[in-house]
């Protein structure tokens, strides 16, 4: 297991997970999501390739109402 920070909270997760698999495991299957790892935006078409590493800081964001 590795430890990552997702939206400000530390979480344990399996080693070698791609972004897609991590999102699946979190139940985040919406298409209206963007993922940033260590302040670098991760384009959608790389989500099935990029693996999450120990200590990574992830931001997973969506759209909400705003002015």
């Amino acid at each position: 297991m590795i430890e990552v920070t997702i939206n400000g909270k530390k979480q344990a997760c399996e080693e070698g997970l791609t972004i897609v698999k991590l999102l699946d495991s979190l139940g985040m299957t919406s298409r209206a999501i963007a993922v940033e790892i260590n302040q670098q935006i991760q384009p959608r078409d790389t989500h099935c390739l990029v693996e999450v590493n120990d200590g990574d800081i992830l931001e997973i964001v969506t759209l909400v109402g705003g002015g």
């Binding site: 964001v61 969506t62 759209l63 909400v64 705003g66």
Partner: peptide
Amino acid sequence: VTIAVRRERLHDSSGRNIL
């Protein structure tokens, strides 16, 4: 229409998304 970007909590309290 303007919208904001916020950390995903998956849905609003009733399970719906603005989109």
